[in-house]
């Protein structure tokens, strides 16, 4: 038995903790486990990845580093599916399983992969209901644990306690998270996880000297970050009521991303890049800005 679980989320979602909840609960069940996150340049809100490898045979875990051929993928935000940097379903094992945190029905998701099992659920909604804020680590971790079909509730409960206490969560908040874990654990059924196989054969190339400037770490194409489309980070979407708006411009000035622009005495929001911090909502002196959950925005 070999489980290669890959967690995709955004900084702040808690994918590292989710991967550790799976890792610890498998460890408590007596399996051999490795888990690790990737820290990169990315900040809160940007795509991040974490990995958990589980086996009953230590020899199958003679492995280090990234998982390129997962048989279990957990996507903590549906918007990641179309993110070329995250590319969460890349390399997924044929017949493997992907969980996607979404309010949508499976049929409404854009998934290009055939022959994989898709499981969906609204962990964000459950988290808002049980914990009162968006904490995906517990929910996603619990779902991953259940999907393996190898781990009992007791081990998961123990793992949630251990991992959340590790990051300073205790008392009432911990109890709420355990309740959330229980709910998520009961939400899904064990999924098929065919053993991962090396799907891709790597070809080795020979590099040669390259002419300047291509051998220098420089950027000449300045001001090019807009193509990253950080709008996909958003959990809440700000909406400006132009009737109420007095055009005072405070939201334009206070927007850290500079995505609100005054055009012809009207305000235009670049939703492709708005990260949804909601400073505009909080600072608007006439309360002309409201927000909705991204998933519910039309």
């Amino acid at each position: 038995m070999l489980i290669y679980a890959r967690f995709h989320g955004r900084g702040g979602h808690g994918v590292k903790t989710a991967s550790r909840i799976l890792g610890t609960s498998a460890h408590l069940e007596g399996f051999h486990v490795q888990d690790f996150p990737i820290y990169g340049a990315e900040r809160r809100g940007a795509p991040v990845t974490a990995f958990t490898k589980i086996s009953d045979d230590p020899l199958k875990l003679l492995d280090r580093g990234y998982i390129f051929n997962p048989n279990l993928v957990l996507v903590s935000d549906e918007s990641l599916l179309s993110d070329p940097i995250a590319n969460p379903l890349s390399g997924i094992q044929t017949g493997g399983t992907a969980f996607i945190n979404t309010t949508k029905n499976i049929d409404h998701l854009q998934i290009k992969h055939d022959n994989i099992n898709i499981v969906v659920g609204d962990v964000t909604g459950l988290s808002l209901r049980y914990v009162g804020r968006v904490v995906l680590s517990t929910g996603i971790g619990a779902i991953a644990t259940k999907l393996t079909g190898m781990i009992r509730w007791n081990s998961l409960e123990e793992a949630v306690k251990e991992e959340l206490q590790e990051i300073g969560i205790k008392g009432e908040l911990l109890e709420k998270n355990i309740l959330l874990a229980k709910t998520c654990f009961e939400l899904v059924y064990p999924a098929p996880l065919p053993p991962p196989s090396q799907q891709k054969k790597y070809k080795i190339v020979e590099l040669n000297w390259t002419h300047p400037p291509y051998n220098i770490p420089e950027i000449w194409n300045i001001g090019n970050t807009k193509i990253r489309k950080t709008g996909s980070w958003r959990v809440f979407k700000p909406l400006i009521n132009l009737e109420k708006c007095t055009r005072c411009s405070l939201c334009v000035i206070y927007c850290p991303e500079g995505v609100i622009e005054m055009v012809d005495n009207s305000l235009v929001v670049d939703y492709d890049n708005c990260k949804g911090c909601l400073i505009c909502f909080n600072e608007c002196p006439v309360k002309a800005i409201s927000y909705v959950r991204e998933a519910e925005a039309v």
Partner: peptide
């Protein structure tokens, strides 16, 4: 304008 000494975090790069 250009950006120089840019952080390069992708291992292949």
């Amino acid at each position: 304008h250009s950006a120089k000494g840019v952080t390069v975090l992708r291992p292949p790069l």
